[in-house]
């Protein structure tokens, strides 16, 4: 008799499974979870904490707040940040002052761990939400974050 009950139970469980998929089939119109990615670019918004790439925000006077302290360079586990710096004499105080010449960011080596942004004492660098990073040549992934002619915002050092 267990032979027949095996068959009965087998068919019953199979039909139960089919009812689950069948329910989704009937609701397939509104239930689809596919994101049609390049088409939904306009509506696709990443969360504000999403770690896409490191950027250095500049204000309208072309000023940033990077003092060249190199803490980000030290914090980076894989050497993606490279700071070329210089010493100039401050016109107001007459003291020697460290300024950045180039804040180089090797995006190709970056693992988006967030340690540099966490380490920055003056919030000079932050995360941007751009995630479309493919390029034809990997040299394009090496970026200079400070814009040409930019200088450090007054009062950041204190």
């Amino acid at each position: 008799m267990s032979y027949l009950s095996d068959i009965y139970n087998g068919i019953k469980t199979l039909l139960t499974g089919m009812s689950v998929t069948g329910k989704y089939f009937l609701n397939s119109r509104k239930g689809a979870i596919t994101q049609q990615y390049p088409d939904n670019r306009d509506t696709l918004k990443m969360f504000e904490r999403f770690r896409g790439e490191v950027v250095m925000p500049h204000d309208e006077n072309n000023e940033h707040s990077c003092t060249g302290c190199q803490k980000c360079e030290l914090a980076c586990p894989n050497g993606s940040i490279e700071i070329i710096w210089d010493r100039v004499i401050d016109e107001n105080t007459g003291k020697k002052k460290k300024i950045i010449d180039q804040h180089i960011y090797h995006f190709g080596m970056c693992t988006q761990c967030g340690l540099c942004v966490d380490a920055c004492p003056s919030d000079a660098i932050k995360w941007a939400q751009n995630f479309e990073n493919s390029v034809y040549d990997r040299t394009q992934l090496t970026r200079v974050l400070n814009q040409p002619g930019s200088k450090v915002r007054a009062g950041v050092e204190e």
Binding site: Y24, F25, A32, I33, T34
Partner: peptide, 10 residues
Amino acid sequence: KVAAWFQLRL
């Protein structure tokens, strides 16, 4: 198509 509709795809 049927597979997609069963699997919540398009």
